[in-house]
Amino acid sequence: MSGIAFDIAHLLAGGLVLVSFMMIYQDRLYALLNVFALHAVVLAAAVAWQAHIQAAEHLYLTAAIALVFKAIVIPGALHRIIRRLGIHRTVEQVVGSGLTMLAGMGLVALSVVLMLGITANSDAIAREDLAFALSVVLLGLLMMVTRRNAVSQVVGFMSLENGLILAAAGARGMPLVVEISVAFSVLIAFIVIGIFLFRIRERFDTVDVVALDNFRGERR
């Protein structure tokens, strides 16, 4: 493994974690979607680099899917929905962004300590990739719990899924799963865009999940 190949893989995976942090403090939906598009672009670059150094052509396809769907089509569609729903206002947050950032740093430290401790005798690229991927997954989870808006929850979920794709791309020679998970995230996004948001809009005139919580099922 040449030094430069490792450094670039490291740089791209680390960049993905950085963009995850950027998503945490975006409090406007448009800005959030733009940062998510950037997240997908960095992911595509990281996966393409893995394809190059592993000489695994099928990963180029994964990178292309990530680039076309997650960086262009889905943010574009969500943009339209937000405009049509007229909810391009601020994103309400339960916890302040400073506190969320601190929690995020804790999660990254946790995943690095956890993964590097465990993978001591795997190859270096897989180690770093898994540590970064777990960080992205945990940051995505953090975003899903701290956001109250349905659109930002979905964005949080898709960033979580980007972390999974990074992990799968880093696992040398892992078949199919990468393409499948990309395909599923696209499917999920379309289900969400096509059905839930419109139905929620139809019924509630809001996509704020707090409003959904008011209709709790336990009828008294």
Binding site: L160, F196, R199, R216
Partner: peptide, 24 residues
């Protein structure tokens, strides 16, 4: 709709964690 949304979000998180485990 609330139930389906909750199921969708929690189920997706569960399934995502399972995929990470599968990769490991």
């Amino acid at each position: 709709l609330e139930a389906a949304w909750k199921y969708f979000i929690l189920g997706s998180v569960g399934i995502a964690l399972a995929l990470f485990g599968t990769i490991l």
